[in-house]
Amino acid sequence: MSEAFLAVKEIHKSFNGQKAVNGISFTIDKGEIFGLLGPNGAGKTTVIRILSTVLEADAGDVTVGGYSLRKNPAAVRNLVGVCPQDLALYEELSALDNLIFFGQLEGLSGREAKSQAISHLSLMGLTERGKGKISKFSGGMKRRINLAIALMGNPKLLFLDEPTVGIDPQSRNNIFETIRSLRDKGMTVLYTTHYMEEADRLCDRIAIMDGGKFVAMDTPQGLKRQIGDPDKVTLEDVFLKLTGRSLRD
């Protein structure tokens, strides 16, 4: 058994009396990529916002790297990096300046922030564009910078909320490779996406969430085995079977 780096126990969150997260528990091991799948409005982003200390859960316990989220949010913030679903960039600043700014807020010195920024830009294949303003970037480039910012300060745990939404296969592939190589260096990742084959290829384990609850949690193979021959069915089949075909808000 490897140690759980993230442990979530029975978290709940309501907005105006509506349950967005309804009693979720799971753990992620060190160096594991954990996929969180679910239709729109399932509560994935809400989970990530709670785990990244932006939102306070109504109930439940979370520990990250041994630190309690409730008691020591600062220590938790120290360990996690967040790539939010919506781009969070200063459009009027250059890519480099964005990275350095957030790096400094993560506690890096100006010099450290700059050298990390440069290495993350090269990881994203954007070395040449470092000085360019974000407002002049394509959607794919912005997504890659959005992810690069999450890496500033070398977090131990990454929350990636649909990091590949709306971009071309090349950019997606780049992000994909980056996540893999980070995992190989020991990074722990919580990953949400609507692309099933992406989750299938990337994730060690997957939870399928619907209406604020987990409806299944297993390895991709294990999930597929639940409904048939794992070599014949796809993750999408599993997803549709478990969450139904009705449209969500």
Partner: peptide, 13 residues
């Protein structure tokens, strides 16, 4: 509006 508020709140700030 820029979406950076939550990001700021996940840093040491």
């Amino acid at each position: 509006r820029k979406g950076t508020l939550e990001r700021l709140l996940t840093t040491h700030l």
